[in-house]
């Protein structure tokens, strides 16, 4: 069996376990799904309140802004659904030595650490976020071609890779810092920028949040595919960023892993 197929089988087993667990604790699942839904509602409300008083934010109208917000939330919910719990636990596991359990598993340690848990509540809300994208596209009268839809899905995938890589880089700092709690908070601070149009960034903010940190292009690039079709600079830029940040995350994680000394690290 190829290594990819083997990893997929391990992932499918983890996913089955997570779903069974969610069904066992249904009340918990409902509460946390509501938590995410409420926080998505908060972002939506902010957009609605601002557009009560203005017609445009950096040249984007209300429906375009909802499309951008929906795309940003979609990527974030997918991250929460597929990777958040695993990466959140990584910090704790390095501190208390439970990472040993993952080292003994038959496959890539980074893969095992990242995919150990699936959060169905995050995945349920990714459907809500997708609903927001579809609603906004309807408001704008967009009729995307199959090619545009495929490209949008691919760029959302690239966005997910970037989010995952940034979160992994933040969490992997635990190998050096012992506690990554504050650093994880930094990831959530950065997410805020992904809900804003790229045109809103000027001067130093443009250099930092558009060029140095990929927090703006991550949602703007897919949203622009639906709005304006294929724009090579945006598409290739996001794909390049995704490859670069994933490479960096893999490098830093494995460097960190070398420092791991079981329970005493």
């Amino acid at each position: 069996m190829s290594a990819v197929a083997q990893h997929l089988r391990v992932w499918a087993a983890s996913a089955r376990y997570s779903l069974t667990r969610a069904l066992m604790f249904r009340g918990d699942f409902i509460i946390w799904a509501l938590v995410e839904l409420f926080w998505m509602g908060v972002n939506l409300l902010l957009v609605e309140v601002i557009y009560r008083h203005t017609d445009s934010i950096a040249g984007w109208n209300r429906a375009e802004m909802l499309l951008l917000l929906g795309t940003s939330l979609l990527i974030q919910r997918l991250l929460m659904g597929f990777f958040w719990s695993g990466l959140y636990d990584l910090g704790r596991n390095v501190r208390n030595g439970h990472l040993d359990f993952f080292l003994a598993q038959p496959g890539s340690v980074m893969f095992m650490v990242s995919t150990r848990k699936l959060d169905p509540d995050g995945l349920v809300n990714s459907v809500v976020a997708l609903g927001l994208v579809i609603y906004a596209a309807g408001e704008l009268g967009l009729r995307p071609t199959p090619g545009q839809l495929a490209l949008y899905a691919a760029l959302v995938g690239c966005g997910l890779v970037i989010h995952y890589s940034v979160l992994m880089l933040s969490t992997a700092s635990v190998f050096w810092l012992t506690s990554a709690q504050g650093v994880e908070g930094g990831y959530f601070s950065l997410i805020e920028f992904s809900r804003m149009p790229r045109e809103a960034f000027r001067g130093a903010a443009e250099v930092i949040f558009v060029w140095l940190l990929p927090v703006v292009v991550v949602s703007n690039a897919p949203a622009r595919v639906l709005l304006y079709g294929f724009e090579p600079a945006w598409v290739l830029g996001l794909a390049g960023f995704a490859a670069l940040w994933l490479g960096l995350a893999v490098l830093v994680f494995h460097r960190g892993l070398r420092r791991y000394a079981s329970a005493s690290s």
């Binding site: 934010i57 601070s189 903010a205």
Partner: peptide, 16 residues
């Protein structure tokens, strides 16, 4: 990190 939040607020409302 809350300064990042403040920066996001300044950029968003500046654009609005």
């Amino acid at each position: 990190f809350s300064l990042f939040h403040l920066a996001a607020v300044f950029i968003l409302w500046g654009a609005a």
